[in-house]
Amino acid sequence: MTTPQLFFAYFAVAMTALSLLIVTRKNPVHSVLCMLGLFIHIAGLYLFLNAEFLAAIQIIVYAGAILVLFLFVIMMLNLRKEETVKKYQAQWPVSAGIGIILAAFLVLILGNITVLPALGEYSIEAIKSEGSMMTVGKVLYTEFLLPFEIASIVLLVAIIGAVVLAKKRTE
């Protein structure tokens, strides 16, 4: 194995282990902590794939905002007594079977996937010369301008929705 492959092997093993920990921990806070580790590993993988901007965004948005929100809700509900009851639903063996079959299926289909060699204009050198953020920005604000604006509306709706839902009813 070459050095990049060893790096990838480490990331793959660590990420799979962390994902398994996330879905099997009894205590939601432990799950969240594993999720934090997973996000950091994903960010590392993104750096590996030459996507610095996304790596930073992954940590800032996912770890810094979404996961803190989860943690905040977990702490607010204070579910210590939930740890004593059973954590899986009755049908969990079926779920495990579905998971394994899905994994096998996807691996069989996609395991040998390859792409045509080097097609687009954004080669590693092109991104390096301009910077990851600049390239993402250029595409985002030209080709994907409309989806970008729609995304902002989605966020606005989410803000308003969250405020309305979480507000106390005043007669």
């Binding site: 934090l36 610095e52 901007f53 940590i59 770890a63 803190v68 943690l71 953020m133």
Partner: peptide, 26 residues
Amino acid sequence: NLNVGILYILALSSVGAYAVILGGWA
């Protein structure tokens, strides 16, 4: 010499918040 230097610092400062939250909870 990262190209996303400012974002890197912001990201790490948000990770640093976990220390306080988790330490307080635990």
